[in-house]
Nucleic acid binder design. Structure first.
Lengths: 241, 241
DNA sequence: TCCGATCCAATTGTCATACAAATCGACTAT
DNA sequence: ATAGTCGATTTGTATGACAATTGGATCGGA
């Protein structure tokens, strides 16, 4: 998303490789990873680069290293579930329906409340940022331009709450939108269909009408959820065909 | 909390030291940290240990290292505000009313929604856990027992949503709020006052009434916030006296 | 046989050093 | 004045060495 395929540093590659192995369940909680020297060799990096990756995974709560024992994969309960990387790894390849449902549920909780708060507190500059994102969506000619502007719009709404904790949840919203983008049937002719929803949110925030903004955002999410359900139906019919 | 004084590893010490310097504002966004060799020397560790700390801080979004340039402190906007360490450093460095307000705002968004979801989806076992926590609160004789059972109650409600993202989110907010005061208690003598609120939440979840549960939770939070305002007033009067 | 203390092998934690790669700015030639 | 080149600076990666910690194996005594 942010980094297309990204020329990640060596340690970054290692971190993603190991992170995905853990999150995808290829190595299960409780298991001990191979010793650092072996792991480094099998990933074709030095122990130095490997260790930096392990440290970051440890900070994300995925593993715990103990002297003399090794690196143990921790239970899912202690994973940093809101971490952008962890969320991304859970969406790697195809996210499960179950996980997408949870992402949508998070949106349903976060974004309407954020829209309402933004309507109450937004400054002129914050409103301008939302407006600019909206106009970029309106002007978008390609899927890529639309996608970028859409993310910007949702980020701007969170920003307008002036609550940086709320804004940090953008990683969740971003992941949810990303999952929606890959799962829903979007093409060159119909990707603009949600523009009116966005306009209603924008106008409510402009006019400082919290409850109107909340409702508009709820409608937008409900609509995208319905869209997901339709896609699932199609996917299932295709699978059983 | 978890680790009293904690025998942190060397790199852990370094990470906390640098993290606090950044979050507290001793080094400001945009500034470049001293080069690694210098930093390592001034902190009395090797470059290896320092680099592991920098890598983790980078993963938390506090800094960004670039070859040939150095480690730049990033803007607060890109900090991982919901990271447990970052939140902890903020609690330590700026325990202002403003920050608490933002935490409370998060709670107002999360917990009512969680209660409603729990009422919709709770299993028998999850309900039993909430019920057990409630009875522990009822049986509490000391503030300590009450506080422990209170935490258990709220955790159990979140657990009953079966959404680990939501759990993770509440968990960090709860921990941060817990650093300032117990979730719902006035003082040693009448800490049980919020028991009826908890009972209403419990019963609504038992009867699978989402909106009732949401309202009950909202009432509980509103009550504890009113309580917070009163104690702030007292603190201010004391300060100006 | 059971139990405890001791020792030892395995593994991570830390350090020191060296060199590769990237960046930025200054300098040079045109 | 400008484009290109070069060099100093700093992070990125690799390597080798040793300290510290852990858990089990070994051994001895009752």
């Amino acid at each position: 998303m942010r980094k297309p395929i990204a020329v990640r540093s060596l340690y970054g590659h290692v971190m993603h490789e190991l992170g995905q192995r853990i999150v995808s369940g290829k190595v299960k909680p409780g298991e001990i990873l191979p010793r650092e020297e072996t792991l480094a060799e099998s990933l074709h990096v030095s122990r130095t680069a490997l260790r930096e990756a392990l440290k970051v995974l440890s900070a994300k709560g995925l593993i715990e290293s103990r002297t003399g024992v090794g690196a143990r994969v921790l239970e899912e309960r202690s994973w940093n579930q809101l971490d952008a990387d962890v969320l991304g790894w859970r969406c790697a390849s195809m996210p499960t329906d179950d996980f997408v449902d949870k992402l949508v549920e998070m949106r349903e909780i976060i974004e309407p409340a954020a829209a309402a708060t933004a309507a109450r507190r937004r400054t002129a500059a914050q409103l301008a940022a939302i407006d600019e994102a909206y106009r970029a969506m309106d002007a978008a000619n390609t899927l890529e331009e639309w996608t970028e502007a859409d993310l910007l719009f949702h980020d701007a709404v969170l920003h307008a709450t002036s609550n940086e904790l709320l804004q940090s949840l953008f990683s969740v919203v971003e992941t949810a939108l990303g999952a929606f983008f890959t799962l829903s049937a979007r093409n060159a002719s119909n990707f603009r269909y949600s523009l009116p929803h966005h306009q209603k949110v924008l106008e409510a925030i402009r006019r400082k009408q919290p409850e109107v903004a909340r409702k508009a955002m709820q409608a937008m999410i409900a609509d995208s959820q319905a869209n997901l359900q339709r896609s699932r139906g199609r996917a299932r019919r295709r699978a059983t065909a």
